[in-house]
Design a protein around this nucleic acid. Sequence first.
DNA 1: CGAGTGATTGACTTAGATCAATGACCGTGG
DNA 2: CCACGGTCATTGATCTAAGTCAATCACTCG
Lengths: 199, 199
Amino acid sequence: MNGTEWLPPDIRAAATERTLRAGQALFRAGQRTSGFYEIVSGRVRLVRVDRSGREAVLHSAGPGETTAEASLFSSTYHCDAIASTVARVRLYPKGPILAELERNPDAARAFMARLARQVMDLRSGLERRNIHSARDRVRHFLALGVGADGLTVVVPGTLKDLAADLGLTHEALYRTLARMAADGEIKRLKGRIGLMPPI
Amino acid sequence: MNGTEWLPPDIRAAATERTLRAGQALFRAGQRTSGFYEIVSGRVRLVRVDRSGREAVLHSAGPGETTAEASLFSSTYHCDAIASTVARVRLYPKGPILAELERNPDAARAFMARLARQVMDLRSGLERRNIHSARDRVRHFLALGVGADGLTVVVPGTLKDLAADLGLTHEALYRTLARMAADGEIKRLKGRIGLMPPI
DNA sequence: CGAGTGATTGACTTAGATCAATGACCGTGG
DNA sequence: CCACGGTCATTGATCTAAGTCAATCACTCG
């Protein structure tokens, strides 16, 4: 879902890489946009800083994720991008990308499909955050994550990562899973969670 | 930001409206996709139902919002759309829309820009939900919402709506705003919130 | 073999949810 | 014109789920 496989090879080749020190700015608000970025390693955050110096994080992207796609459609950046750690990023230059999207309907369609999918995923994430109970939040995740078998859900990465995704502390997630397992609602498997039919 | 102004007039004209009773399905998972919808009035939710009958809400859209955009790029729906209230919806038929996007680069670009912008907004929403303290969540909202003057933030709709947006109960929001005002961090204005420079 | 990280569980605290009541402000229909 | 029902805004009291701090075990990787 992440990554840039959807880009035609020639465009991908046109990308350039760059390394940032922790705290270094990738771009600043007001600067002319040069394209969007894929994070190769490390983390980069998009922040908006108010007059009083407080910063509000808009997005934080890690390896394999892309950031600042919207910059393709505006002439200047509207926020700062700062490396949170040492980071390696890959710039996909605006001009060639836009030209390709204009010329090649397949690329355009792929890009739109990708964006549409992202919108959906983000919406379900947001919807999930509206759920207050930890247990129901886990249930929501499980319901959306069931594989084709309808019986197991693969846990992407570590449980800690999942906890962050769900907006819970890892302790809260461990406890919730433990209780759900004790109640026979789920079964803990290696890297997966098994769903038990209710009664 | 919401709405469908970006669509060329001829396409907008091709849309058809339809009224749903509360609880009535707009479409079901597995059905062939016919296009995406704009909600004219009422609310429609996208839900995925697991074998055990529990439903997980993916998204809930109100007046002026669009839903199921991703269906443009897949042949069948992957979730159900159910009217939560009596609702009037407007269908933008897939075929003509896709054809237009293919033929007209400007429309395509507008569509992509719109999606990209949505992705950004949703990301900041998600980022905000990662903030635990109600006060910091409000600060995040304020920091992102400052108008050009850099001094006031317009509150879209009622405070209740805002509370839902922020993932707080309305009581919690009222209290937080009251405390922030008492501390001189903000000033309550009619339909807006004034920011006070720190000290 | 340590050092680092994930997984897990316990004890304690707190912020925010929940329940409840009140006043202000509509619009509207008799 | 005003009484009524509805919603928003606001504040108080109480409760609880989840956050925070802390300790332990298992594991993997140079």
